[in-house]
């Protein structure tokens, strides 16, 4: 099992069996930010605290990235192996809409308002052989 390293510290709880997105909440005005911010962009307060934003939400808008982005995009893909990916904003119970990659990459599989579930996935392998982990949302599976 390769070592699994988050793409950036503080975006989500890791390692975890039930990972959560992390954000910050302003102590003064209660506005929520993702990623966590030391200062509040709403009221300018310098007092914020780290909170869990949850692991499921509702799709607020979406698109599909059909071409492989140039740098700074950094994946293991080549133009030949590139697969289109969904991108959207997911409305979180923590009180903020988070931009994220989405598992579905066909328009018929995406619609505004659909319930989405957080997953933490290996995104690429770095030079040390570590798996770089990022977050993504996929449709909530029918019970």
């Amino acid at each position: 099992m390769p070592n699994q390293v988050p793409v950036h510290e503080g975006l989500f709880t890791w390692p975890s069996t039930k990972p959560q997105l992390l954000g910050s909440r302003c102590v003064d005005c209660a506005e929520t930010a993702f990623p966590a911010q030391p200062d509040c962009r709403s009221c300018g307060s310098r007092e914020t605290k780290i909170i869990e934003l949850g692991d499921c939400g509702t799709l607020w808008t979406w698109t599909i990235q059909t071409f492989m982005p140039k740098a700074p995009y950094k994946s293991d893909e080549t133009p030949e192996t590139f697969q289109p990916y969904g991108v959207g904003y997911v409305e979180m119970p923590g009180g903020v809409r988070v931009e994220s990659r989405l598992l579905p990459n066909k328009p018929e599989d995406l619609h505004i308002g659909m319930p989405m579930q957080l997953e933490i996935i290996p995104f690429r392998t770095d030079d040390n052989g570590d798996q770089i982990m990022t977050f993504r949302f996929s449709p909530v599976k029918e019970a």
């Binding site: 698109t63 990235q65 982005p69 700074p72 950094k74 994946s75 991108v87 931009e99 990659r101 990022t134």
Partner: peptide
Amino acid sequence: DEWYGETGMMLTTQFFALKTQR
């Protein structure tokens, strides 16, 4: 931070599509 670009979200085309879709 770099992760935003590395994971493929730093594109103006995406934003305009996301805003238009909504």
